[in-house]
């Protein structure tokens, strides 16, 4: 038992060694940790937490970046730095909720279709998936969000509806290729229940590609969410979101450039962090599979 545990610690160390050899992956990890930290503790670490909502202070409106307001203030005097950090919080919340719903739904459907390949269940699930994948997720999400009432919940719903098919197809591919393997057949023949086969036999094989895709997807979900909120189909003012801050600030170009430039850099940084981390993790898992 003890031996087993020490072996596990070693592999963790080894994994970290492999991961840390690529400086960009480490940079990604650092960015992601900082962003998550800032997002979780935003009410405590931001200089003006009350500015995250409908706050007005016309006396200090449109101030350029300076020592008092590092990123400047917007047209009604709210601190941009504070609002960008709160927007990170919203972006992460959105990404987590979208993925937490769409990943299990998509993966389970994909695994079921993969195990029952050739039956009507397979056909039904995978053909529906094909339909949803025929237009890019963002267009579908925009269309659905526009039909529903514009708010954060509906934006998340719209993105979730257009996101699950990717995981369905991913899990389907893996499940299909292993569902004829001997150990799965053994489980079937010895009376393993369907649930047992899905979660105990198939799922462990699908988990690493799914997790890899998830880390790479966080950035894409954040980008889709920002796009929706840019056109006004996501989080509504006065709540800060990366997209709606840019679209509100665009009216004040070029003189009050800080209104748009800092949220824009914010989006780039948060997506960059998750992309780099995702690349690092997928390299790690790719090595593992060799």
């Amino acid at each position: 038992m003890e031996k087993k545990q020490s072996k596990k610690v070693l592999t963790w160390k080894k994994q970290w060694y492999r991961f840390s050899r690529n400086k960009m992956s480490v940079a990604g990890l650092v960015i992601v940790i900082l962003v998550i930290f800032a997002a979780v503790f935003s009410p405590f670490i931001t200089p003006y937490p009350q500015h995250a909502g409908a706050f007005t202070d016309y006396a200090s409106a449109n101030m350029a970046p300076g020592s008092e307001h590092l990123f400047g203030t917007d047209y009604i005097g709210r601190d941009i730095l504070t609002r960008v950090i709160f927007a990170f919080r919203n972006a992460l919340k959105m990404a987590v909720i979208v993925l937490v719903i769409s990943v299990p739904v998509g993966s389970v459907l994909g695994m079921i279709a993969g195990i029952r390949q050739g039956t009507w269940i397979d056909t039904l699930i995978m053909r529906i998936t094909d339909v949803f994948l025929s237009v890019p997720s963002m267009i579908l999400a925009l269309a659905i969000a526009s039909i529903l009432k514009p708010n954060l919940t509906n934006a998340m719903l719209a993105i979730t509806i257009s996101w699950w098919p990717w995981y369905c197809r991913l899990a389907y591919g893996t499940a299909r290729s292993i569902s004829r393997d001997n150990y799965v057949r053994y489980a079937e023949l010895t009376g393993g229940s369907f649930v047992h086969i899905v979660f105990k036999e198939i799922l462990p094989n699908c988990i690493s590609p799914i997790l890899t895709k998830m880390t790479l997807d966080v950035g894409w979900v954040i980008m889709t969410g920002a796009s929706l909120s840019y056109v006004g189909l996501g989080e509504q003012a006065p709540v800060p979101a990366l997209g709606n801050m840019i679209s509100a600030g665009i009216k004040y170009l070029p003189n009050q450039w800080w209104n748009t430039v800092f949220p824009a850099i914010g989006i780039i940084v948060i997506i960059l962090g998750f992309n780099l981390l995702g690349d690092g993790i997928s390299d790690l898992l790719a090595v593992e599979e060799d």
Binding site: I246, I268, I271
Partner: peptide
Amino acid sequence: YVGIAAPPFVMAVLFLLIFGY
């Protein structure tokens, strides 16, 4: 890395600022 992470609409806004104004 930066070019892939930057959403096109963000690039568009930055271009608008830089080359438009």
